[in-house]
Amino acid sequence: MCDHCFIASVVVPLLKMLLLALILLTVQFKWQRNANINTKMYRIIEFVGRWSMLDIFVMSILLAIIKFNKVASVEVEPAALLFAIVVILTMFAALRFDSRLIWDDVNEHS
């Protein structure tokens, strides 16, 4: 497997889920963390989110080329469907999160 495929397929979704979980935990349990760090992590999630659909896009184009030219046969296995579901759910989770919650605890103590 090529390096950029591993990064786009494994590292990007994993990084996105871990950072989002960390931000959610700090907001939910009001852990004393610097709000600037959480804001930077949220911006990283937004930036990484742009690239999270890259694999699905590439697979769709390759599938269309293969089907169009009848070069080979392709079967979509359950892992591809599950990967697409994880990517879509992490996109919705990042979009649904209200970044103002990061600063609520800071504003309450001021």
Rank of each mutant, 00 (worst) to 15 (best):
R50Q: 05
Y42W: 11
I102Q: 00
L101D: 11
K67T: 11
L20H: 00
D55A: 12
W31I: 12
N38Q: 14
V76E: 08
S73V: 14
T26N: 15
A79Q: 13
L63Q: 10
N107I: 11
D98N: 09
V10W: 01
C5L: 15
I65S: 11
V71P: 03
V86G: 05
S110E: 13
A35L: 05
A21S: 13
C5D: 12
D105M: 09
Q28N: 06
D3G: 08
R43G: 02
M17H: 05
A72R: 13
R43E: 09
V11T: 01
L62H: 04
D105W: 07
K30P: 05
M1S: 06
M53L: 13
V71C: 12
S99K: 12
K30E: 15
R96T: 09
V87I: 13
H109M: 15
W51D: 05
A35S: 14
L81E: 08
W51F: 12
W103Q: 07
L22Y: 08
A93G: 05
K70P: 05
V71G: 09
A35N: 06
F29E: 07
P13I: 00
I65W: 08
H4S: 13
N34C: 08
W51R: 06
L62Q: 06
I102P: 00
V71L: 15
W51A: 09
A72E: 14
L24E: 14
L14N: 10
F6P: 02
D104L: 10
I45C: 02
